[in-house]
Design a protein around this nucleic acid. Structure first.
Lengths: 205, 205
DNA sequence: ATTACTTTGTAACATAGGTTACGATGAGGT
DNA sequence: ACCTCATCGTAACCTATGTTACAAAGTAAT
């Protein structure tokens, strides 16, 4: 993705020279949980996973930053705590554009388009975090699956849902163990609620 | 709280006449999950709980809006979905100031202090949502308790943590059943990790 | 002090789902 | 076609925790 096409900068007057672009290979930790943030980052290529270690030692993916999304954003105005909520880990070769908080702020207050873009991105992020919370608050494996299917049905506008990931990854997202996921999918298939194969799940009822 | 003292409007030039103030008794539903939001709300007195029904029929409190906090904020710039993520329910007699999205936006782009306040409030909210996610992702009752204690220790700056709520409410926040909470607290006391009574929990190790 | 109600602890029971292990299936490379 | 490795389903076992019920302790009102 070209810098000038990303959601944050589209139609804005931000001068590109003040932006530094970095490239990282797959699976690189670019920041640790608790690190202080001084820059806004824009994902130009690849993905970033925000991973958190729970007290029990397991780690879970709190959120995924796709191409075009930004990070370090909400931290600028945090009254006390400017630190990242989790480890930032690249997935695939990843290019990131960095912009100093102070530079960014200077533009933000003088460019209504930038402000609009910024608020829209924040809005998205809040929406996704809400979804994550709702998913985590479903208390059986089946409910988590159903919640996921519901949501994907809305996104993909189809009862046949393409997974685009392994069952292992899906289990991870749903925050359950893979064999538990398999078991429950099996039951649901038996009950005629769904059908599924390696790549898709189809909602029957 | 006086309108001009709330975090959003402090030091700003927003004209008070455009704001409508409403008052609701305890336990009033002021919006339903999915309702479209057209206004920014500011909590002047009382609290608002954001409650979500899970698929299993249980309901959990996604977040609590304390005096001075705002809602409907992130929805202004949501690209698609402008609807509330949960039911908004008052707790105690509650006074709310409402400001039309369009009025708000008009001010937002012309008042740097308002913008700064707004971003700071959004930042806070994101921080709290992160905490909630991390809490929900702890996978044993004990880890949830420990996470809560850790967090409260930081806030209260003391190993003796005052609960300010019943065990029932605490169980609710931790997203576990009350008897499960009791059982685990008992075990932890036995192991010498904590001590507790009706109103406090003390971290011993 | 008595009563009524709320809050809390405890115990017994049932079960969902974590854990581990293994075999079957599928995909990619030579 | 064959080999290798990743992915997936399945089964057996076990434990944490939800569930229900009840009694003890605390609180507030009369």
């Amino acid at each position: 993705m070209r810098l000038e096409d990303c959601r944050l900068l589209k139609n804005t007057r931000v001068i590109i020279e003040e932006i530094k672009i970095m490239e990282y290979p797959h699976n690189t930790i670019i920041a640790l949980e608790g690190d202080i943030s001084t820059k806004i980052g824009i994902v130009l290529e690849g993905k970033i996973l925000v991973k958190v270690n729970s007290l029990g030692g397991k780690n879970f993916t709190m959120s995924v930053l796709e191409t075009g999304q930004i990070f370090g954003d909400v931290l600028i105005y945090a009254p006390q705590d400017h630190s990242y909520p989790g480890n930032l880990v690249t997935q695939g070769n990843t290019r990131i554009a960095f912009l100093n908080n102070s530079d960014f702020e200077k533009y933000l207050f003088n460019d209504n388009d930038l402000l609009r873009n910024f608020l829209s991105l924040l809005s998205d992020k809040a929406y996704n975090m809400n979804l994550k919370s709702k998913l985590l608050s479903q208390d059986t494996v089946r409910d988590k699956i159903l919640f996921f299917l519901q949501q994907q049905k809305r996104v993909q506008k189809n009862n046949r849902i393409f997974l685009h990931m392994t069952k292992e990854e899906l289990a991870n997202i749903l925050f359950v163990q893979r064999p538990s996921l398999s078991r429950e999918l099996g039951k649901m298939k038996e009950e005629g609620l769904i059908d599924y194969d390696r790549k898709t799940i189809t909602i029957l009822k």
